[in-house]
Amino acid sequence: MTNTTDDSKEVEDLEIALLLEGMFKRYGYDFRDYSLAHLRRRLRHRMESSSLPDMGAMLHRVLHDRSFFELLLRDLSINVTEMFRDPDIYLRIRTEVVSRLKTYPFVKIWHAGCATGEEVYSMAILLHEEGLLERCQIYATDFNQIALKKAKAGIYALDQIRQFTANYQKSGGRESLSDYYTADDHSVILKNWLKKKVVFADHNLVTDSVFSEMQLVVCRNVLIYFNRELQNRIFQTFYESLCPGGFLWLGSKESLRLSPMNKHFDPLFADEKIYKREL
């Protein structure tokens, strides 16, 4: 029995490798260095939902059917986010980081993997309240076109606003969150002026080139889906994208600690995932 299960695992792993290779060669999206445990889950889930017999059948389908590829793309990108997610850390950004950003004549911020944009608007609101937004340029990028379109629209479900508001208040918000949106029966629509310093762009962290001279890079809950090698590559990308002394802000469970790039960054606080690039 053990042998059969080991065999079937080996075959499935091979099929997954071929599937990822096929997706990369055919469509240019590279998932080959994603966390395998995560990939297995998502791909098996798609296989079952689409009633396919095995990963080999899925490879065939994805090569011949672009709409199926787009379905898979959605399965493989996790877009869980909210406004002012981890409000205590937003408070730290507001009280400790913004004052340092203010020393620059002009501030460039990159939200790498911005998903549906909630955190981009959170940042714009924070910068506005701290009187810095006018001097900022925010680049918000994601490889998922559907998510990016939502981000650009800035329209969110009304039932989320209670959570967003609670987060905003805990994050040190100075006004009322409702100052920044209009609401109808189903949704909240963020005010257009919040977008004036934001450029939304299609960009794939894994395959596309670096940005330059950023004062702050925000990349939260993106790297957890990557394997160690890819994480290191992306940390290198962030290093090259930041100005000396620039800030890197990771998700609350992400860390540079186990990466060789660790030596080029200093944590700003003991455990709060904000790092400063070496000079």
Partner: peptide, 11 residues
């Protein structure tokens, strides 16, 4: 993971 390290996801 196969190398006996942990992954976290927000799936």
């Amino acid at each position: 993971e196969d190398d006996r390290t942990f992954s976290l996801t927000l799936e």
